[in-house]
C-alpha cells in the first residue's frame, strides 16, 4: 500500500465517522417523544398547519427516506432553521464559529509553544528542581477543569491586579474591524488596524491561557516521557560517542522522534479544545459558539443542535486527518511500513 493510499483510507474513515455521527444524532432526535412539527409551531398551531409542516418536513415518510433528506441537507450545509433564533442555523454558526475557532487556534499554539519546551526542559534537567516544578505545573493543568482556571485567572489578573480586561473580545469604544472572516486577527491586520488587534490580544490572553492549560500540561508530560525514553536508546549513545554536543543531541536527534507520541495526543487535545471552549467562553463572555450551543440545547432546538454537533465533529475529523499526515512526516517508519506492505 502506498502512503497516499494510506492517507486516502484515513480520509474515507473520516467520512464514515461523520456519517456515523449524523446517523446517531438523527436516531437520537427521532426517538424523543413529541412531534417535531408541533414543537416547531408551538401550542397554538392549527391541525392543518401542523399537517402541512409535517409534509414539508417529510415526517410522514419512512425513516430511511427521512434520513436521506436530512443527509442531503447536511451535505449542502443546510441545517434548517433554528427555532431559537428563527434564522438558518448555518447562518448563526457562520457568525459564531470563527470567533470560537480563533480562541481555539491561539490556545492550540500555546499548547505547542509552551508545553513542548517545558517538556524538553524537564527531560534535560531530569530529577532536578526544574523537573519537579514542571511536573507540578502539569499536574495542576491536568486536574483542574478549564472553567475553574478561567475563574481563578480572572480573579487574579482582571480583578485583583487589574492588568487585563475582564471579558469580551474588544474594549468598549474600540470599533470592531469590518467582518471578512469573523476572526479579528485576520480582519484587523488585513484592514490595517493594528491597535484593534492589540486590544483584542489583551482580551484573548486569559481565555486562551485557561483553555490551553490542560493541553500544555499534557504536552509537557508526554514530551518529557518520550525524551527520557529515547535518551536511553543506543543511537543517542552513538551520537554522544561521536562527540556531538548535548544541546544538539537534545534538539536534533532526540526531539523529532520524541514528538511522535506528543503530536498524536496533542491532536486529540487540540480537537477537544473546541468542547472545552464551551466552558471558557461562558466565563469570559466570549461571543462564540458556546452560549449558542447551550441555549439551543436547553431550548431543544434540534436543527441548531445538529448544526453545532456536526461542526464539532467535522473539526475533530479534519484535525485528526491533519495529524495523520503530520505523524507520517515525522515518523518515516509509518510511511515505509506502508510501502513494504505493498512490496
Amino acid at each position: 500500500m502506498r502512503y497516499s493510499t494510506y492517507l486516502l483510507q484515513r480520509m474515507l474513515l473520516s467520512v464514515v465517522v461523520l456519517l456515523g455521527l449524523s446517523a446517531l444524532i438523527f436516531l437520537i432526535a427521532r426517538v424523543i417523544p413529541g412531534d417535531p412539527a408541533r414543537i416547531a409551531l408551538g401550542p397554538l398551531a392549527s391541525r392543518t398547519q401542523i399537517a402541512s409542516l409535517r409534509t414539508a418536513m417529510h415526517l410522514d415518510e419512512p425513516l430511511y427516506r427521512q434520513y436521506a433528506y436530512y443527509l442531503g441537507g447536511l451535505l449542502n450545509g443546510d441545517f434548517g432553521e433554528s427555532l431559537y433564533t428563527r434564522r438558518p442555523a448555518s447562518a448563526d454558526l457562520r457568525e459564531l464559529f470563527p470567533s470560537t475557532l480563533e480562541l481555539v487556534v491561539y490556545a492550540g499554539l500555546l499548547m505547542v509553544v509552551v508545553g513542548i519546551p517545558l517538556g524538553i526542559l524537564a527531560a534535560s534537567y531530569r530529577d532536578t528542581w526544574v523537573d519537579t516544578t514542571v511536573r507540578l505545573i502539569s499536574l495542576g493543568g491536568v486536574v483542574t477543569p478549564a472553567f475553574v482556571w478561567a475563574i481563578v485567572l480572572m480573579l487574579i489578573f482582571a480583578y485583583a491586579l487589574g492588568v487585563l480586561p475582564v471579558a469580551g473580545r474588544l474594549s468598549p469604544g474600540v470599533v470592531p474591524p469590518p467582518v471578512v472572516t469573523g476572526m479579528i486577527t485576520i480582519d484587523a491586520l488585513w484592514g490595517g488596524a493594528p491597535s484593534t488587534y492589540f486590544d483584542f490580544l489583551r482580551h484573548l490572553i486569559l481565555p486562551a491561557v485557561s483553555l490551553s492549560l490542560a493541553g500544555v500540561a499534557q504536552a509537557a508530560r508526554l514530551t518529557r516521557a518520550s525524551m527520557v525514553d529515547i535518551a536511553g536508546r543506543p543511537f543517542i549513545e552513538a551520537a554522544r560517542a561521536f562527540g556531538i554536543s548535548e544541546a544538539r543531541i537534545a534538539l536534533k536527534y532526540m526531539l523529532k522522534p520524541s514528538l511522535i507520541p506528543t503530536v498524536t495526543i496533542l491532536g486529540l487535545d487540540f480537537a477537544a479544545l473546541l468542547g472545552n471552549a464551551f466552558l471558557v467562553e461562558s466565563v469570559f463572555n466570549w461571543p462564540g459558539m458556546a452560549r449558542y450551543g447551550v441555549e439551543v440545547i436547553l431550548h431543544k432546538d434540534l436543527n441548531a443542535i445538529v448544526a453545532v454537533v456536526m461542526v464539532m465533529g467535522l473539526f475533530f475529523v479534519v484535525i485528526n486527518f491533519l495529524i495523520d499526515i503530520l505523524v507520517g512526516y515525522l515518523d518515516p517508519r509509518i510511511r515505509l511500513r506502508q510501502m513494504e506492505d505493498a512490496a
Binding site: V17, I28, V31, M312, G313, N320
Partner: peptide, 16 residues
C-alpha cells in the same frame, strides 16, 4: 472514539 467526546454528550443531553 472518533466522535469528539463532549459533542456526543451534548447531543444526548440535547434531546433528553
Amino acid at each position: 472514539l472518533s466522535i469528539p467526546p463532549l459533542a456526543l454528550a451534548l447531543a444526548i443531553l440535547a434531546v433528553l
